[in-house]
């Protein structure tokens, strides 16, 4: 009797079930690299715009991808598609953001002075950025997330519910309120004397 007969593939370093069960092919480095190139920028934009902190967005984006790869039940990009993978990634990032805001020792988004976001926005070259930055800063973090997911990423109400963990039925109302509020703020921003030129 030898070990190979007791535990098949034990010397090859292969898990016993891997040789028998037809599993989904694991994500390889090249597939991940492609997915990363296509998903990292939108994810960073989401994190940076909803948190108002580009450095935090850098950290959380990297952490999101690492957790995506380490997930115990990973999304198979080949089987479920890249859209599902990206949705899962945004969900991880949303949870990380929520954890960050819940942590008592770290600065919460509510504690960040409005000038910080306003200064970030005004330093941007685009005029739309300078208008949207202060308007976003006056909204609650959840509203910022909902608005970004709906209007920048184009997710449906059901997808937003899946990403944020909110009830699907409440998304419509929350989004309607948030949109009404930011539209009002955007109109006020653009009607300021400095903006009318």
């Amino acid at each position: 009797m030898n070990w190979e007969s007791i535990l098949p593939n034990v010397f090859a370093g292969v898990a016993p079930h891997a040789a028998e069960a037809p599993m989904d092919p694991p994500m390889d480095n090249a597939v991940f690299a492609g997915f990363y190139q296509r998903s990292a920028r939108p994810l960073w934009a989401y994190l940076a715009r909803t948190s108002g902190d580009p450095a935090l967005a850098d950290d959380l984006m990297q952490e999101s991808f690492v957790r995506f790869l380490c997930a115990s039940h990973p999304v198979s990009l080949q089987a479920e598609g890249e859209v599902a993978g990206r949705r899962y990634l945004f969900r991880i990032a949303t949870n990380l953001l929520r954890d960050h805001w819940r942590r008592p020792q770290s600065a919460s988004i509510e504690e960040i002075p409005e000038e910080f976001l306003a200064a970030t926005a005004s330093s941007a070259q685009s005029d739309s950025q300078a208008v949207l930055g202060p308007a976003l800063a006056q909204l609650r973090p959840r509203d910022r997330q909902l608005l970004w997911l709906a209007h920048a990423e184009g997710y449906s109400h059901r997808e937003i519910a899946e990403i944020t963990g909110l009830a699907s039925a409440s998304i419509r109302l929350l989004l309607f309120r948030a949109r009404h509020k930011i539209a009002k703020l955007l109109r006020e921003q653009s009607s300021l004397p400095g903006r009318q030129a």
Binding site: A33, Q37, W44, Q62, C70, H151, A152, I182, A183
Partner: peptide, 28 residues
């Protein structure tokens, strides 16, 4: 709102310094 967010998205995604995917793969 949609136009403002689309412009903001285009602006934000244009200038993101990305780390190498290999680094994240290795960390994972």
């Amino acid at each position: 709102v949609q136009q403002a967010f689309q412009r903001a998205r285009a602006h934000s995604t244009a200038a993101v310094p990305l780390v190498s995917p290999g680094v994240l793969w290795w960390r994972a």
